[in-house]
């Protein structure tokens, strides 16, 4: 029991790191496209770690599948939305930031 709790705590701390990095990227990155990168990748990984942490704590496989479904839905929706927003920005003529 103590070991699963330890792993859960470890995963949750990791997820916090990615959520913080996602927010930091949203604020620091220079243009829309870069900010989209931060949101889709860092936040989805953060949520993935939360889901994994809760899976370890669950005692029924029904709960495990349910968590997995929620994560998959957010993953697919997030990737699709990121593409739609980037495409719209492209078609509106937003030039990507260059160093």
């Amino acid at each position: 029991m103590a070991l699963t709790d330890l792993i859960t705590a470890f995963l949750l701390l990791g997820s916090l790191g990615f959520f913080l990095a996602g927010t930091l990227g949203l604020l620091r990155f220079p243009d829309l496209y870069c900010r989209l990168h931060a949101l889709t990748k860092a936040d989805n990984l953060g949520l993935g770690l939360v889901v994994l942490a809760l899976m370890i704590q669950s005692d029924s496989w029904q709960v495990v599948i349910r968590l997995l479904l929620i994560w998959l839905l957010v993953l697919v929706a997030g990737a699709t939305v990121a593409h739609l927003i980037a495409r719209k920005a492209q078609q509106d003529g937003h030039q990507p930031w260059r160093r």
């Binding site: 790191g17 990615f18 990095a21 996602g22 930091l24 990227g25 620091r28 990155f29 220079p30 243009d31 496209y33 870069c34 990168h37 931060a38 990748k41 860092a42 492209q90 990507p96 930031w97 260059r98 160093r99």
Partner: peptide
Amino acid sequence: VAHRACSISLPLDPRI
């Protein structure tokens, strides 16, 4: 992406 967001120098060189 987390590493890039947290680096002071903001190591980005984006292109399409």
